[in-house]
Design a protein around this nucleic acid. Structure first.
Lengths: 191, 191
DNA sequence: CAGTTATTTCAGTAATTACTGAAATAACGA
DNA sequence: TCGTTATTTCAGTAATTACTGAAATAACTG
C-alpha cells in the first residue's frame, strides 16, 4: 500500500502517528513528511501512489498544509499540474510553525481573556476568577512580546541567541551577585 | 446544564473549545479552566454539578489532568473525598506545560530521527532524506538544549530574560557592528 | 465548441474519540 | 463483619473527525 524506501517510510509513518498530538491528522502529517524529505516537488498523483490514499484526501490535506503555510506550490514549464514542496530552510519552517500555532492556539485565548477582563465582576467568585485570568493574561502577554521580539531575528542571530541561552543566564547571575554585594556593603555601612 | 457565574462560564467554555487545538478534549479543558479560577479546591461532585457532565467523565478527565501534572490533589481533614486545584503560580504552570508537551510532542520525534540517522542509506533518495532529517534533528537539538538551559531558571530570572529578549538582540547587533568595523579597518589597512 | 486532464467539492461512510451508566473496587466506620 | 460513601473501570453508545468515490468545476487543447 505504501511503497517507499524503508528509511523514508519510518519517517512518514512517525509523522502520521504524531499528527494527532500536533493537532493535525495522520494524512496531513504523512504528506508533510513525504514532501519534506523528497528531493524534488511532488504532484498529487505521486502522493496518492506513495501513501496509498485517495485523491480527494490528498487534495484536502494539501489545502490544509497550505492554510498552515507549510507547503510551497511549484509549477514546471509545460505542465499544468501542481507540484508541492516544503521550504528548504528548517529555520524558516520553525518560524512558520511558531507563527501559525500562536495564531491558532494563543491569540484566541488572549482576546477572550481581554474581553472578560473588561467586564465588571458581580460577585466575590467572579472577582477572584478575574484576578486569576489577569495573571494568565499578563503571562501570555509577556511571552508573546518576547516572541514578537525574537521572531524578527535573522537565522544566524537566532542561532546565536539559542546557543547563548545559558550564558545570558550566567551573566544575569553574575550581575545579581554584584548587586547583592553592593547591597550588603551599603547595609554594613549603615550598621 | 452549566450553572456558573457568566464571567467564569465564558472562560470555561473557551477552554473547552480550545481543548481540541491544545491536544486535550473539551471536558479536560473545561475542568482545568474551572479549577484554575476556583477560589478553593473542588471535589468531583462539585465539578459534575458545575459542568453538567457525568461522574465517570470527571473521573477520567481528572486522571488525564493528573497525568499532565496540571492538577493538585488535596485533602481536607475528616473528609475522605479528593479535592483538586491547579498550582497558584502561573510560571510553574508554564514550566509544567512546556515539560509535558516536550515529552509528548518532541522527544519521540527526536528519538525516531536519531534511530533513522543511524541506518545506512541504500539509495540516493534515502541519502537525500537522511540529510534532510539531519537538518531537522539538529534544529530540534538546538532548541531542546536551549530549553533545558532556561527551564532551570527561577521565575524572576526567567521573567528578566524574557523582558531582556529584545535587548540581547540589540547587544548582538552592536557587537556585530563593532566586529565589522574592525574588519573594514583592517581591509583598508591592507589596500 | 467538444474533449482531455487536473483539481475540488461534498454526501455518505468508516474510523476514531468522547462520554455515559452500571457494575466493580476501594476505603473507611460501626 | 456489613453498610456507606468515594472513586474507578469498562462495555456500549453518541459525537466527532477522517476518508472515499462520484460528480462538479476549472483550465487548458485542438
Amino acid at each position: 500500500m505504501m511503497n517507499l524506501p524503508p528509511l523514508v517510510q519510518s519517517f512518514v509513518l512517525h509523522f502520521g502517528e504524531m499528527g494527532s498530538r500536533w493537532g493535525i491528522n495522520r494524512t496531513v502529517g504523512q504528506i508533510y513528511a513525504l514532501l519534506y524529505v523528497s528531493p524534488e516537488p511532488l504532484n498529487a498523483e505521486q502522493i496518492v501512489e506513495s501513501l496509498g490514499i485517495s485523491r480527494s484526501n490528498v487534495s484536502m490535506s494539501l489545502r490544509e498544509l497550505q492554510a498552515w503555510n507549510l507547503v510551497l506550490l511549484k509549477h514546471l514549464p509545460d505542465d499544468r499540474r501542481d507540484f508541492f514542496t516544503t521550504p528548504d530552510d528548517v529555520w524558516q519552517i520553525l518560524r512558520t510553525l511558531a507563527e501559525e500555532r500562536k495564531k491558532r492556539e494563543v491569540d484566541p485565548t488572549l482576546s477572550v481573556l481581554r474581553e472578560i477582563l473588561m467586564q465588571k465582576p458581580a460577585s466575590d467568585a467572579e472577582r477572584h476568577a478575574q484576578v486569576r485570568m489577569g495573571e494568565m493574561h499578563s503571562l501570555i502577554e509577556q511571552l508573546t512580546t518576547w516572541y514578537e521580539d525574537v521572531k524578527q531575528l535573522e537565522t544566524d542571530r537566532l542561532a546565536t541567541l539559542l546557543t547563548l541561552g545559558a550564558k545570558v543566564t550566567k551573566l544575569l547571575e553574575a550581575k545579581d551577585k554584584i548587586v547583592s554585594l553592593g547591597r550588603s556593603k551599603r547595609t554594613n555601612d549603615k550598621g
